[in-house]
Design a protein around this nucleic acid. Structure first.
Length: 218
DNA sequence: ATCTGCAGATGCGGAGTGGC
DNA sequence: GCCACTCCGCATCTGCAGAT
C-alpha cells in the first residue's frame, strides 16, 4: 500500500498540480454537530430519492418535497397519519415512489430516537472518523434505505467527515491491495477503514480530503 | 447464531420510437 | 405538433442457500 504522499502525487499529476488539486478537495463542515435535525432528514431523503434516479428530476421537485413534508420537521414526519401519507403519494410535486416516501417516516423516527444519545448532530456529526464504518453500519441497520452508497452520500452532503466508496475510490483501494473487489463484507469495510486511518495519521487530513484524493488518482 | 453472496423484484421520469 | 408506448438508469430490498 502506497503512502498518502505517494497517492497525492499521482492525483496532483493528473489534475493540474497540487494547487489545482487542493481546490477540488472539500473539507467537512466544522460546525456539523450543530446541523438541525430537520436538515439531516432532508439530506437523507434527498439522497434516497437520487439513488437510481436522474438527479435533476429530484432537484427540480425538491421545493415540493420540503413543502409537503413540513420542512422535514421530525414530529410531523414521524407521526404522519395514513390519510396525509396517501395524499402525498398521489401528489405530483414529489416522486410518487411509495417505498421511498415511506422512508421519511422511518428515518424521522430514527432521528428522534437519537435524541436520547445527544441528538442527531452529536451522534451523526460527532461520530469518530476513525470508526466511520460503525456509523455506516448503524445507518444501515436502524435507518431505512440508508445502507450502501446512499448513507455515504447523505453523510457527505450533510457536511460530515466521510468517505464515499465510488467507482474510482474503490479502484484505488483495489490497486493498493486493501480490498480485492468492491467492499461489501464487514471484513472488507474494516480493511478500508484501516487504510483510511493509516492515511489520516500520515497526513493529518480528513476522510473527505483523502477520499477525494483517492478518487482523483484514477 | 450470525454473516455472506447471489438472483430477482422494485420504482418513476425522460429519451426514443412510430404513427397520425 | 401530439399521443401512446417501450426501454433505461441505479441501488435498494427480500428471500434463500451456503459458509463461518
Amino acid at each position: 500500500m502506497r503512502s498518502f504522499d505517494e497517492i497525492y502525487a499521482i492525483s496532483a499529476d493528473r489534475h493540474g498540480g497540487p494547487g489545482a488539486l487542493e481546490e477540488k478537495l472539500g473539507k467537512p463542515d466544522p460546525e456539523i454537530t450543530k446541523l438541525p435535525e430537520d436538515r439531516w432528514l432532508s439530506v437523507m431523503t434527498k439522497c434516497i430519492f437520487q439513488a437510481g434516479f436522474n438527479w435533476k428530476v429530484i432537484e427540480a421537485k425538491w421545493d415540493g418535497f420540503e413543502e409537503l413534508f413540513h420542512g422535514f420537521e421530525l414530529g410531523p414526519c414521524a407521526f404522519m397519519d395514513d390519510r396525509e401519507f396517501d395524499a402525498i403519494l398521489g401528489d405530483t410535486r414529489v416522486v410518487r415512489n411509495g417505498a421511498k416516501l415511506a422512508t421519511v417516516r422511518a428515518n424521522a423516527s430514527l432521528l428522534m430516537e437519537l435524541r436520547d444519545q445527544g441528538g442527531a448532530g452529536e451522534v451523526l456529526g460527532g461520530w469518530a472518523s476513525t470508526d466511520y464504518i460503525g456509523l455506516l453500519e448503524m445507518l444501515k441497520k436502524r435507518g431505512s434505505r440508508l445502507g450502501g452508497n446512499t448513507g455515504q452520500y447523505a453523510m457527505r452532503f450533510a457536511g460530515r467527515d466521510s468517505f464515499i466508496l465510488s467507482r474510482d475510490v474503490t479502484a484505488r483501494l483495489m490497486a493498493e491491495g486493501v480490498i480485492d473487489k468492491p467492499a461489501s463484507s464487514k471484513a472488507a469495510m474494516k480493511a478500508v477503514q484501516g487504510a483510511f486511518n493509516t492515511w489520516m495519521e500520515q497526513s493529518g487530513r480528513s476522510l473527505n480530503e483523502i477520499s477525494r484524493v483517492l478518487a482523483f488518482s484514477c
